[in-house]
């Protein structure tokens, strides 16, 4: 990797962190409605993963999608505008926090029904296989999604039809407030892929470079073999499941212990220790992220609300 790439990974992670911290404030001010699921603590997962894709590769994820959106190249201001429900938002203010997508960036959402996007991912990969595109589909989901039927239908079909799809389980140890071992018959999630003869791997999700390397290998496998691969990425969310989560299901000491493993801190220390970047360079990137976030908030707050006629737009694609 070139130095620029190293710094870009750092910048993406810091930008996600700043954007989400700002979003949390705006939520508390009542400017963001609905649910808000923060990605804080998990930034290394999507940053490492998506940095390993080719532009033609599709990404689809669940509702904890702000970070993934930014990693896919969606400007922070369009993410923020969507959170505020503005017409300049990535989904024109109609999707909100859980439903962001940008087809031009090959980001296929943002899906809020747990596990339901896995069959869609199988279909995206089927479409590419059918059309003989040199593209794979990267499908991210949480540990909680591995207990629902859709997961099993989708994994099974992906193997039966040898679909070019990379299944990525972000195991953050809790499906909402229920710990993995209280909800899943096997606590090592990757074992579920074994049941469908899908080759698999597991990687530390707090280290962006390890994630990137595992992702590169997994993506190469899918592309070369034209068949699925399963990557479990172990991570932890520092904030509640969503805003307003009383967090009765875990102890503050546990969260504190994980926060000492902050993926941004780990990576920052690595860059300095390996003399890839200086503290000053990284501080400048921190400032840049803070500035971009402030501009995103400004953009979102000053953007127009969707006009009333937007209500009936896009119910159907056909012009009748």
């Amino acid at each position: 990797m070139e130095k620029e790439e190293y710094l870009d990974l750092y910048y993406q992670m810091v930008l996600i962190r700043r954007v989400e911290e700002a979003a949390a404030q705006l939520y508390q001010q009542g400017k963001i409605g609905g649910f808000l699921h923060l990605y804080i603590g998990q930034e290394a997962v999507s940053t490492g993963l998506i940095s390993a894709r080719q532009p033609q590769d599709r990404v689809i994820t669940a509702y904890r999608d702000h970070g993934v959106a930014i990693n896919c190249g969606i400007p922070a201001k369009k993410v923020m505008a969507e959170l505020l429900g503005k017409t300049t938002g990535v989904s024109k203010g109609k999707g909100g926090s859980m439903h962001m997508a940008d087809v031009s960036k090959n980001f296929w959402g943002g899906h809020a029904i747990v596990g339901a996007h896995l069959p869609l991912a199988a279909g995206l990969a089927l479409g590419d296989q059918y059309l003989e595109n040199d593209a794979i589909t990267i499908c991210m989901f949480g540990d909680g999604a591995t207990n629902i039927g859709y997961f099993h239908e989708a994994l099974n079909l992906s193997k039966v039809w040898n679909l070019p799809v990379l299944w990525v389980c972000e195991n953050n140890r809790y499906g909402m407030g229920t710990a993995v071992e209280r909800a899943s018959a096997v606590s090592e999630i990757r074992q579920k892929a074994e049941g469908y003869c899908i080759p698999n791997d597991c990687v530390d999700g707090m280290d962006v470079l390890k994630v990137r390397q595992a992702a590169e290998e997994a993506i190469r496998f899918v592309r070369q073999n034209n068949s699925p691969f399963f990557l479990e990425i172990e991570t932890y969310r520092f904030r509640g499941h969503s805003m307003g989560d009383p967090e009765r299901y875990r102890k503050p000491e546990e969260v504190k212990k994980w926060e000492e493993n902050d993926p941004i801190g780990i990576y920052r220390n690595h860059l300095i220790a390996k003399q890839i970047a200086s503290e000053e360079e990284l501080d400048l990137l921190d400032e840049k992220a803070t500035k971009e976030t402030a501009e995103a908030v400004q953009f979102a707050e000053t953007s127009p609300e969707p006009p009333p006629e937007a209500l009936f737009e896009h119910v159907y694609a056909d012009v009748s």
């Binding site: 339901a116 869609l120 199988a122 279909g123 089927l126 479409g127 589909t137």
Partner: peptide, 15 residues
């Protein structure tokens, strides 16, 4: 579920 879900995905992909 995966019959319809995969059909949706394949439609999004251009088939």
């Amino acid at each position: 579920a995966v019959i319809v879900g995969a059909a949706i995905g394949a439609a999004l992909a251009g088939t």
